[in-house]
Amino acid sequence: MKKILVTGATGQLGSELKVLSENYAQYEWIFADRTQVSLDNLDVLKKQLEVLSPNIILNCGAYTAVDKAETEQELANMINDLAVGIIAQYAKDYSVKLIHISTDYVFDGTSSVALTEEAVTKPINVYGATKRAGELTCLKLNPDAIIIRTSWVYSRFGNNFVKTMQRLLQERDTISVVNDQIGSPTYAADLAQVMMNIVTAQEWIAGMYNYSNEGEISWYEFVLAIQEIGGYTCEVNGIPSSAYPMPAKRPAFSLLDKSKIKEVYGIDVPEYKVSLKKCLKFKV
């Protein structure tokens, strides 16, 4: 029986993979937290991988605190780049299939058209820079790996934008949300299913892929959708990013072009409101 190792198992994507794993009993699943696969301790990481001895690695673990990364650059780089290098090299050495998750934050946000896998990368914050470094390291050490860039991830698990907005929409009479950052959200359950579609596909076609749900919206429009589906009465106002300064800059436009993953793996990409409704049924 082949073993699938999921890193970052307690995160949003790892948690959705755990739910999904019930449909894939032909595999032995290892859901590794930080103690079992220590992405912040490079001295033990390779040994941990050797002990677990997986056939497939789904690398969902990452340093994702975008604003904190500005002051924790070393830690962010260790987890998002150096640890990825160790995993990629291990996968290469032992012929292990590797899917590594990356981000739309590798882009600078100046595009006006959906970004393909070949679009020029130019991160504008530390988090994006460390994730881009991890992509390059992964591809250099293990050209057989698959990297999936995704954006605006949410789920019924953990802390995320959707759950925060649901709470605020219920607690407050009025909220303000940035309306000049454009992209598309990703329901983690959908991305988990895509990963398993790739794992179980007849052919493994290495390289970079984009995945998010369909739709081109702002964060403000996303909140309006949450409000509409949830039936909340709170007033929602759109504001420019300049009115809500954060330690780390965000790309103004990071909509991902999903043509490649649709064509190569026959992936059906749901519209964002369809997936949002599914998630909200769980009483996030």
Rank of each mutant, 00 (worst) to 15 (best):
K3Q: 12
K3S: 09
K3P: 03
I4C: 06
L13A: 04
S15N: 13
L17G: 10
L20D: 14
E22F: 11
E22R: 13
N23H: 10
A25E: 15
Q26S: 14
Q26E: 15
E28W: 07
I30P: 01
R34H: 13
R34Q: 10
T35Y: 08
L42R: 08
L42C: 07
D43G: 10
V44A: 13
L45K: 02
K46V: 01
L49K: 01
L52S: 02
S53V: 00
P54Q: 05
N55I: 00
C60K: 05
T64W: 11
T64C: 11
V66I: 15
A69T: 07
E72K: 04
E74N: 12
I79V: 15
V84N: 07
G85I: 03
I86K: 06
Y90I: 01
K92W: 05
S102G: 10
V106L: 10
V106C: 11
V106N: 08
F107Y: 15
T110G: 13
A114H: 11
L115Y: 13
L115I: 13
E118Y: 09
A119C: 15
I124M: 12
I124R: 10
V126C: 12
G128I: 05
A129C: 05
A133W: 00
G134R: 02
G134F: 03
E135N: 05
T137S: 13
N142S: 01
D144S: 12
R149F: 11
S151F: 09
Y154I: 06
R156Y: 04
G158Q: 13
K163W: 06
M165Q: 14
L169Q: 09
L169V: 08
Q170C: 02
Q170S: 13
R172T: 01
D173V: 03
V178T: 11
D180V: 08
I182P: 08
S184H: 03
T186G: 06
T186M: 05
L191Y: 06
Q193L: 02
Q193I: 00
M196V: 02
I198L: 03
V199L: 03
T200F: 00
A201M: 02
I205G: 00
A206Q: 14
Y209M: 06
Y211E: 01
G215W: 06
S218D: 12
V223N: 07
A225Y: 10
Q227P: 00
I229R: 11
G231F: 04
G231K: 06
Y232T: 05
T233F: 08
T233C: 06
C234G: 09
G238D: 09
G238Q: 09
I239V: 15
S241C: 12
A243Q: 14
Y244N: 14
M246S: 12
P251T: 09
F253W: 12
L256W: 09
D257A: 14
K258P: 00
K260C: 09
I261Q: 03
G266A: 03
I267H: 00
I267V: 14
I267K: 00
V269L: 01
V269C: 02
P270L: 09
P270F: 08
L276F: 07
L276D: 09
L276R: 03
K277H: 13
